[in-house]
């Protein structure tokens, strides 16, 4: 009989709420298709109200449903690393600004969580990151679904080996960045008329001066800057996780079971190299990140 001071034993993790996940994914997809395929005609001249409402609630609601479906399934080790990812997204974005970088770097935390804890945790980190950021910068809110997609895809890429070799990470970054850019463009156009930083708007202006429609110009700009941004982010995250002590990586079942970092994250029995001095020396000479 359990003592009244202990909590009743309950299921540690529940089954994923597939209905919520399916609804969230469908809502996001439907919103995107509505915006891009039907392309509300009003955007050509005026500022559409239906399009902006649909993009705000479709993407935000879809992200919320995804988070609601994912969260109950996550283990404590994944949940604890998610706030870290969210804080990193926001704080490194600020450092990047203070160092005078031209790219955003606001997905480092999302990709890091995705690599260590898996696609579900990555997606939830991306969506919640923009929700928390919305408290300081409301412009981040409507991009929550795009950030969730980045986390999901980064986790899948890690699962299938994109982080086992350092030269594979930028390739994955290029592809995922391009997808992210395509998804984010309609949000930027229909909510804010594609307003961004002076740098990104200069690119849009160049395409506009060649006569492109705003959505096309913003999509081309998204393809350019988001791919570049994600290439840098993926390389950075790869170099960071290679430098992590093995003990830190192995506490995550996802990284351990899927051998996300190749030989580095393999589940080896505590053998000749215990948790001694934490250095970044890889166990074998393969895929050593150059310093």
């Amino acid at each position: 009989m359990s003592s009244p001071l202990t909590l009743a034993p309950g299921p540690a993790t529940q089954r994923p709420r597939r209905v919520l996940l399916a609804l969230g994914g469908t809502l996001i997809l439907a919103t995107y298709l509505f915006l891009v395929v039907l392309q509300p005609a009003e955007i050509a001249g005026g500022v559409g109200s239906t399009a902006s409402l649909v993009s705000l609630f479709g993407f935000l609601g879809g992200g919320a449903l995804l988070v609601a479906g994912i969260l109950p399934t996550l283990s404590t080790s994944s949940l604890v690393v998610m706030p870290l990812g969210i804080a990193l997204n926001i704080a490194i974005g600020q450092i990047a600004g203070s160092l005078g970088m031209q790219i955003y770097l606001d997905a480092i935390g999302t990709v890091l969580v995705a690599v260590l804890a898996g696609p579900a945790a990555g997606a939830a980190t991306g969506a919640l990151s923009n929700a928390v950021w919305g408290l300081f910068n409301p412009f981040a809110l409507p991009f929550a679904a795009g950030a969730a997609l980045i986390g999901l895809l980064a986790g899948l890429a890690a699962k299938y080996g994109a982080f086992r070799r350092v030269y594979l990470a930028p390739v994955a970054g290029l592809v995922i960045g391009a997808i992210g850019g395509i998804v984010a463009a309609p949000v930027a156009v229909f909510m804010f008329g594609a307003a961004g930083t002076v740098g990104t708007n200069a690119i849009i202006a160049a395409f506009r001066s060649m006569g492109d429609v705003l959505l096309v110009a913003a999509t081309k700009q998204g393809l350019l800057s988001d791919s570049l941004d994600k290439i840098v982010v993926f390389v950075l995250v790869a170099l960071i996780v290679y430098a992590l002590p093995q003990r830190a990586v192995r506490q995550f079942p996802f990284a351990r079971n899927h051998r996300v970092l190749g030989a580095r994250s393999a589940a080896v029995a505590p053998g000749p190299t215990p948790s001694g001095p934490v250095t970044a020396t890889p166990p074998r000479g393969d895929a050593a990140p150059d310093a």
Binding site: L88, A248, Q251
Partner: peptide
């Protein structure tokens, strides 16, 4: 050079935060 600077800052930052997180777990 900027990328290297960013890496020099983020790597120790992430290692420290992950250590904290595993303790918190």
């Amino acid at each position: 050079s900027r990328l290297r600077a960013l890496l020099a800052v983020t790597t120790p930052l992430v290692i420290g935060l992950l250590t904290d997180a595993s303790e918190r777990t």
